[in-house]
């Protein structure tokens, strides 16, 4: 008795929406990065759901590559956060508006 695809996709959309809400309403740059991770995770869940439904391993390959990109993104992103905090002593995106048009 397999889980139907609709369940996977529903959960994936719900998690993605939660992450998007977090990115849009939170002001702390660390929490915004975490919400981006959650959105990437939601997309991974959709890939795994499709892979399970269509019995193909290719979906799992894409999850593997998304995880690699997520790891690289977090390493560079957190290095940027530390560098910004050293210069400006803030992690609020409202104070980081130097390049805002």
């Amino acid at each position: 008795m397999a889980v139907p695809l609709e369940c996977y996709l529903g959960l994936s959309v719900a998690l993605f929406t939660l992450g998007a809400i977090g990115v849009l309403i939170r002001r702390n740059i660390l929490i915004i990065l975490m919400c981006i991770e959650m959105m990437l995770n939601a997309v991974n869940l959709a890939f795994i759901g499709f892979a399970d439904t269509f019995k193909a391993v290719d979906g799992q390959m894409f999850v593997f590559f998304v995880m690699t990109v997520a790891a690289a993104e977090v390493a560079v992103g957190l290095a940027l956060v530390v560098a910004v905090f050293r210069n400006r002593a803030t992690v609020s995106v409202d104070d980081l508006n130097l390049m805002k048009w």
């Binding site: 995770n41 795994i48 799992q60 995880m67």
Partner: peptide
């Protein structure tokens, strides 16, 4: 989410999820 990967018979990805994420 790793538990859901296990349910979807993606054991390797579930292990990677816990180790990497």
């Amino acid at each position: 989410v790793a538990g859901i990967y296990l349910l979807a018979s993606a054991e390797f990805i579930a292990a990677i999820q816990i180790i990497v994420y």
